[in-house]
């Protein structure tokens, strides 16, 4: 097995384990979000292996560098040390969710199945900022505009929601 495949499986296991760690860690929200960071970074590494370099870097910058930091910031700002909620009918929920999850997983895996073509050799410049940038500002320029509008509205929305006194 070549190095990249070994790396892929290492990062895959890392991603799955830390994702599970995030979902199953009911005691400590900070630890859960740090697990999420590990998943993000593992995914970024997998993107590098898939030769999507720019996406990998952006994944780290945005997800690890901004989004999860924001999560952490809010957790720390609100000082949520532990979530010790009153017990509810959780076993039912968990059982149902697990069942549903297994069902969906089987469906997804069946859907992909074997039979995808061989992975080709990528053309020159694949995954770099140049090609992506040119595409973004020619064919997909409308998408970029829409994204900017979306971000603007998100900023305004977050401001309104988080503002203490709206007047």
């Amino acid at each position: 097995m070549e190095v990249s495949a070994i790396l892929f499986y290492i990062f895959a296991v890392m991603a799955v384990v830390s994702a599970l760690g995030m979902v199953l860690n009911v005691r400590n929200t900070v630890a859960a979000s740090l697990s999420l960071v590990v998943t993000m970074i593992a995914l970024a590494a997998i993107y590098v292996l898939l030769e999507a370099y720019l996406i990998a870097v952006i994944q780290i910058m945005v997800y690890a560098g901004a989004i999860v930091v924001l999560f952490l910031f809010v957790i720390m700002l609100l000082n949520l040390r532990e979530d010790d909620f009153a017990p509810g009918r959780q076993w039912l929920v968990k059982f149902g969710a697990g069942l549903l999850g297994v069902f969906v997983l089987i469906q997804l895996l069946k859907l992909v199945g074997p039979g995808l073509p061989e992975v080709p050799v990528v053309p020159e410049g694949y995954g770099g900022y140049r090609q992506l940038g040119i595409l973004l500002y020619t064919d997909y320029v409308l998408l970029v505009e829409m994204a900017s509008l979306l971000l603007l509205s998100a900023i305004v929305g977050a401001l309104i929601l988080a503002k203490r006194n709206i007047d």
């Binding site: 929920v93 149902g96 969710a97 549903l100 069902f103 969906v104 469906q107 859907l111």
Partner: peptide
């Protein structure tokens, strides 16, 4: 909310399953 999430997932799975 979790109930809604459940229903949402079931609905999404049903729609995707029907489409495919």
């Amino acid at each position: 909310t979790q109930g809604y999430v459940f229903l949402m997932i079931v609905g999404a799975v049903a729609i995707v399953g029907w489409l495919l």
